[in-house]
Design a protein around this nucleic acid. Structure first.
Lengths: 408, 408
DNA sequence: TTTGTTCGTAAGGTTTACTAACAAACGTGA
DNA sequence: TCACGTTTGTTAGTAAACCTTACGAACAAA
């Protein structure tokens, strides 16, 4: 079962070319999430800007304003964006004609003057499909609304599948999810483990046996929908932060492995080799540590990955507090240089709450404070993610929303 | 002695408002180094884009092309930028009228067609003043050409001056440098130790006893020239990288203290508290270490700062190789998580070559490789800076160039 | 009923970069 | 030598984008 024509959003004029987590570098990333716009130029770091690009940007700005501030009038948007009412009207007309925005009727409250016509993003005109391939035993997926709320779920047991077999599982999951959709689909977002490049090629995912797998291309060809693929932790952080908001954020995702997502200067960090956030195999401390699968001693993953922690806790005579405290401390030791170098103000922990939200968390905070300069990092906050298990699915929705509409 | 009116560049229409290292966030940083343009809006993270902004961007693009590719014809620029010859001609005419670009006469080589008129940035029509306040004993300054080559130097011994006294020294140095200029000055760039915010306020510089010192404002008011102030390491990295080129880079500056500058996604990292790169007081390893002035044990600075290293080397029976190797190893330990998290491909060391370029350097590389994931960081390069002592002065020139013309 | 406010739209102007066309200036080759 | 092709830079006209100005519609408050 594949998507029917009726399911395709009016927004996507093409089968959607490569593009992924970050707003590719259309002119040093000005029109970050330009919509429609096929962002196919990753070549020159900087390029010319035409008036039409400005319009794309302003269009996205209007959409973003509506999306985050909720239903409001054209005049409200004009005030908030700094554009004139005339220009906003023009942009809104375009958005309405594309089905992305709808009029809701007149505002109720009693004020002098002509009553405002409320408009809003057509929040229930599209759905998004999100996939989380980061779990070890199961591929999870969901159909979400534009705001990320989950409408339908589906799972497929992985049963150790790798390589092409695993790809077919992913395809089957997508097919099943498409069957669960009830309205047009804006796009598909995928959080995959491993190293994923900006074109959505999984360069390397050892657990799944994938090497240079063009997952974006495969799914786009199969469904004829816009597809965005990125590393699972880099996707997860979008659920916490959005893709366009300002600020700095680090998310550490503890599961079968340990990975991180980073946002610096308001934008996701990809890394020179597309492997940003891969801190699982950084060695912690100078006093050895457990042997890691990678061959080194004392890798972060050997200290804090979920299987390792659970195994330790189940050992005879294990002291839960001590074990979790030590693991949290090890995480703090690795994060301290990163927090210091980037002067981060917010760090988020994502993973099994029964392990992380307690002694572990406290030890991490404590260690971070003790190992960085107090005055500089006074504002530092370390918190648990509130998104629980769905963080990747919701992040995938944000990724699609951002990639297709320039909104998050 | 202050700047005469004749020394003011035609480019600066105003006494130049606050602005500093990074291209402040004019609309999510699209028109990075927009010239003339008073970039006074740090409020909304994202804002509207008008056609005139697009023009600013294209103007800077033309200038950048000329600056980096050297003298060429309007048609060449058109081909390289993707703009049409008509548009390039128009922009160039504007730049010529402002004195930023000059015609050099016809191209010599024999080709069919109308001979091209070569144009170039008016490389000898402006000078830049750079200041390096990061050394402990002396404030250094230079008058440079647009390309960063140093024309004149000046120094003032600090003699332990702090607070207002130190500010007066800086002002005296600026005055002396202005007296050494022979043509209009494009602006003044300052690399200061400590935490410097985007408005050029030195939030905190313990060595100089500065707290919330509005250095940018002070110097701008005094000279009526554009002034840019940033942290010394963040300035230094501009000399290595430029402010607009793509890529990731980390520069570690070892001197009286230890600091770092970071460029991620092609842009300088400032940090939530404007203290990005302050890794000097991050604790290294889990086996203690020398007591640091800040009170903690085993801070990076306590391991590798220049005074500490020199003292160790002068001790009786000191083994030079062992000492430098251990210091380098400690640096590697701190950098490993940063390199891993950001997936950096290039790290630069700046500081006294007699200490850093040898066993120290080797130990850092070696440690970095051993403590990160080999496959992901295979492309990692760690090299010594080639800019030696002038790195901050040259970076300051880049900062001004970038801030005023959108060029680097 | 009058007055003032607010909303959305219409008309017209400015800026921007584009396409099309051209003259100038130069090699090349018959 | 002279027609021809090529390249450069400019002129003229067009399309797109946003702006300012102005207006009618619709409402609250006096």
């Amino acid at each position: 079962m594949t998507a029917t024509d009726a399911q395709r959003g009016p927004v996507t004029t093409e089968p959607t070319p490569p593009t992924s987590v970050a707003h590719s570098d259309l002119l040093t990333v000005p029109f970050a999430g330009a919509p429609i716009f096929t962002r196919s130029r990753a070549l020159r770091p900087t390029g010319k800007v035409l008036p039409e690009h400005a319009r794309s940007h302003n269009r996205a700005l209007v959409l973003q304003t509506l999306y985050s501030s909720g239903a409001q009038s054209r005049a409200d948007i004009a005030r908030e964006t700094g554009l004139t009412r005339v220009t906003v009207s023009d942009l809104v007309a375009e958005l309405i004609s594309e089905g992305l925005v709808v009029e809701l009727g007149q505002r109720e409250d009693a004020r002098p003057g002509k009553p405002a016509t409320l408009i809003d993003v057509a929040r229930d005109a599209f759905q998004i499909i999100g996939l989380d391939l980061s779990e070890h035993e199961v591929f999870r997926g969901a159909v979400t609304a534009l705001d990320g709320t989950i409408a339908e779920r589906a799972e497929l047991a992985r049963d150790g599948a790798t390589g092409e077999e695993a790809v077919r599982l992913v395809e089957a999951l997508v097919d099943r999810l498409l069957g669960l959709t009830t309205i047009p689909v804006l796009g598909i977002g995928v959080g995959s483990p491993g190293v994923v490049d900006p074109l959505g090629v999984v360069r390397s995912a050892p657990n799944l046996g994938w090497v240079d797998l063009p997952l974006q291309e495969r799914l786009a060809a199969r469904t004829d929908l816009p597809v965005h693929v990125a590393n699972d932790a880099n996707v997860a952080i979008l659920a916490e932060h959005g893709e366009t908001a300002p600020g700095e954020l680090l998310l550490v995702k503890v599961g079968h492995g340990v990975g991180a997502g980073l946002i610096v200067g308001g934008r996701p960090v990809i890394g020179g080799g597309f492997a940003a956030g891969e801190i699982g195999h950084v060695v912690v401390g100078t006093d050895g540590g457990p042997r890691c699968a990678c061959g080194k001693d004392g890798c972060l993953e050997a200290w804090v990955a979920e299987p390792r922690l659970r195994a330790q806790l189940e050992a005879v005579g294990a002291d839960r507090e001590v074990i979790l405290h030590e693991a949290g401390r090890r995480l703090g030791i690795v994060l301290a240089p990163v927090v210091g170098a980037l002067n981060l103000t917010e760090v988020v922990l994502s993973g099994p709450a029964d392990l992380l939200d307690g002694a572990f968390h406290e030890a991490t905070v404590d260690t971070l404070r003790k190992r960085t300069m107090a005055e500089l990092n006074r504002d530092l906050r370390l918190r648990m993610s509130e998104q629980a298990e769905d963080i990747v699915l919701r992040g995938a929705a944000v990724m699609v929303l951002s990639g297709q509409l320039g909104v998050s």
